[in-house]
């Protein structure tokens, strides 16, 4: 093994936690791309309710309410929920019809550890809005 290779390997070993983090970020970026493509994402226009501290990461209540008149010509077409530090980022995607009175969905999700919940709302004209909530988790809910 050449000195250069050994040095490279040592550098790689030192980077291992960073690499794991990068892989998680990569999976998240991929999930976001899969959900909304390359559309520009704007913040705001969404009420995202989640507890600041979740005692039980296995059952975390989440409410998403997107500002929208929910008419045939102007409505929320989809709501995507993602988690930044779960083993896999996908939580759920909801496809809404304008028959709904408002663009609101309540669900319960799993969080493995302290992390952020990302909500992306896709309007019927292709615009995408985002909201983020940070949740601390007392007991992780994915692997237990």
């Amino acid at each position: 093994m050449s000195t250069t290779t050994r040095r490279a390997l040592l550098a790689l070993a030192a980077l291992a936690p960073a690499a794991a983090r990068a892989a998680a970020d990569g999976a998240l970026a991929e999930a976001i791309r899969e959900a909304v493509g390359e559309a520009p994402i704007e913040d705001g226009g969404i009420v995202l309710r989640a507890p600041a501290v979740a005692e039980n990461g296995g059952q975390v209540p989440v409410t998403v309410l997107v500002e929208s008149p929910m008419t045939a010509s102007d409505h929320v077409a989809a709501i995507h929920i993602l988690a930044t530090r779960n083993p896999t980022p996908g939580v759920a995607s909801f496809h809404l019809s304008p028959l709904l009175a408002r663009a609101e969905v309540q669900t319960r999700i799993r969080l493995a550890e302290e992390q952020r919940i990302i909500v992306l709302a896709q309007m019927n004209d292709g615009r995408v809005r985002r909201a983020v909530a940070e949740v601390r988790v007392t007991t992780g809910g994915c692997l237990t």
Binding site: N86, P89, A92, S93, F94, H95, T107, R108, R110
Partner: peptide
């Protein structure tokens, strides 16, 4: 309403 549920949806899926 149609939903694609993934790993992060809790056991006993509950929706409102």
């Amino acid at each position: 309403l149609a939903a694609d549920l993934r790993n992060g949806t809790a056991a006993n899926p509950f929706h409102v």
